[in-house]
Amino acid sequence: MKVTIEENEETGKFTIKVKTEDGEEKTIEIPKENLEEILAKLPPNVEII
């Protein structure tokens, strides 16, 4: 699983794009305050880009 994290400076939010092993892609946008909480919940086999 690969996770790409991009900061949107205009909105102050982060866009998180997840690509699973089977090629499925999902995108979510979260507030900056929630980034550490989300990262802590990721499984250890995740590659963060």
Rank of each mutant, 00 (worst) to 15 (best):
M1H: 04
M1W: 06
K2C: 14
K2Y: 11
K2F: 09
K2N: 06
K2S: 11
K2M: 10
K2D: 02
K2L: 09
V3H: 01
V3Q: 01
V3S: 01
T4V: 08
T4H: 06
T4Q: 05
T4E: 06
I5Q: 01
I5F: 04
I5P: 00
E6C: 14
E6N: 05
E6F: 13
E7C: 15
E7D: 05
N8T: 03
N8H: 06
E9Q: 11
E9H: 13
E10L: 12
E10C: 14
T11R: 03
T11M: 02
T11F: 03
T11C: 13
G12M: 01
G12N: 05
G12T: 02
G12C: 10
G12W: 02
K13Y: 13
K13R: 12
K13S: 13
K13W: 15
K13D: 15
F14Q: 13
F14M: 15
F14Y: 11
T15P: 13
I16C: 07
K17H: 13
K17E: 05
K17I: 15
K17Y: 13
K17D: 04
K17R: 08
V18M: 12
V18E: 01
V18D: 00
V18K: 00
K19P: 02
K19G: 03
K19M: 14
K19I: 15
K19N: 06
T20I: 05
T20Q: 06
E21S: 12
E21L: 12
E21W: 11
E21H: 08
D22V: 04
D22N: 10
D22F: 09
G23W: 02
G23A: 02
G23V: 01
E24Q: 12
E24P: 05
E25Y: 10
E25C: 13
E25L: 06
E25V: 12
E25F: 09
K26V: 14
K26W: 15
T27R: 06
I28E: 04
I28V: 07
I28L: 07
I28Q: 04
I28K: 01
I28R: 02
E29I: 14
E29A: 04
E29G: 02
E29L: 10
E29H: 08
I30D: 00
I30C: 14
I30L: 04
I30Y: 03
P31R: 11
P31H: 09
P31V: 09
K32P: 08
K32V: 07
K32Q: 06
K32Y: 11
K32G: 09
K32W: 13
E33R: 06
E33Y: 06
E33T: 06
N34E: 14
E36N: 11
E36P: 09
E37A: 11
E37V: 07
E37K: 08
E37L: 09
I38G: 01
I38M: 11
L39K: 02
L39W: 03
A40N: 07
A40H: 05
K41T: 12
K41I: 08
K41S: 11
K41H: 10
L42D: 00
L42A: 01
L42M: 06
L42S: 00
L42W: 07
L42K: 01
P43C: 14
P43N: 06
P43V: 06
P43G: 15
P43H: 09
P44W: 11
P44V: 10
N45H: 09
N45T: 07
N45F: 09
N45Q: 06
V46M: 05
V46Y: 11
E47S: 07
I48G: 02
I48F: 10
I48Y: 07
I49Q: 07
